[in-house]
C-alpha cells in the first residue's frame, strides 16, 4: 500500500498520461458495478488567491477543472466511494481518477496496481520538484558579499 495520504493521490496519478489511467480504471471497473454519484463533468474552476499585501481574497483567473464521484459495488456486497477533482478539461479522466481513488481507499481488487501507479507517479513528481529546487540552488546569490561601495554603484 502506498504511504502517500489520499490527498496526494491525484497529484501522483496525474503524473501519468491520461490514457494509462483511463485504461487501468476501465479494466478494474469491469469487476464492479459503477454508480455515478455525480456525473463526470468538465468545466472551469475559479482560482481564489489571498493577496500578499493585505491578505484579502481576489480571483486570479480560471483553470480547466473536471470532477466526478462514484460508488463501486462488488458482488459480495462491499462498496467503496471515490471521487476526484482534477485540473484538466477531461471528464473521462475525472471518472477514471474517481474509480482509482475508490479502489485504493477501500483496497478493492486491483488496489495494488493503482497503488504502484501512485508510487511511480510520486517518483515522477519528486523528480520535477528536484529540478525546480536545482534551479534555485544553482542560482542562489549572496548580495551581502557586495561591499558598500560596490552596492552604492549598483543601485539604480
Amino acid at each position: 500500500m502506498t504511504n502517500l495520504e489520499r490527498k496526494h493521490w491525484i497529484r501522483a496519478l496525474t503524473a501519468h498520461p491520461a490514457s494509462v489511467l483511463n485504461a487501468l480504471a476501465d479494466e478494474l471497473a469491469s469487476e464492479f458495478d459503477v454508480k455515478l454519484k455525480s456525473l463526470p463533468q468538465a468545466g472551469l474552476g475559479l482560482l481564489t488567491l489571498t493577496d500578499g499585501a493585505f491578505h484579502e481574497p481576489y480571483y486570479l483567473g480560471e483553470f480547466p477543472l473536471s470532477s466526478c464521484s462514484v460508488e463501486l459495488s462488488m458482488a459480495d456486497g462491499r462498496t467503496a466511494a471515490g471521487g476526484a477533482h482534477v485540473m484538466a478539461d477531461d471528464a473521462d479522466l475525472a471518472r477514471a481518477l474517481a474509480i482509482l481513488d475508490a479502489v485504493v481507499a477501500a483496497r478493492l481488487p486491483g488496489w495494488e496496481r493503482v497503488s504502484a501507479q501512485i508510487d511511480a507517479g510520486a517518483a515522477i513528481r519528486a523528480e520535477e520538484d528536484r529540478r525546480r529546487r536545482a534551479m534555485l540552488a544553482a542560482t542562489r546569490v549572496d548580495f551581502a558579499m557586495l561591499n558598500n561601495a560596490e552596492n552604492d554603484d549598483d543601485e539604480g
Binding site: 489520499r6 490527498k7 496526494h8 474552476g45 471521487g83 476526484a84 477533482h85 482534477v86
Partner: peptide, 11 residues
C-alpha cells in the same frame, strides 16, 4: 476531496 472533504491538490 469530493469524499473526505480534505484539501487535495488537483493541479
Amino acid at each position: 476531496h469530493p469524499i473526505t472533504g480534505e484539501p487535495t491538490e488537483v493541479g
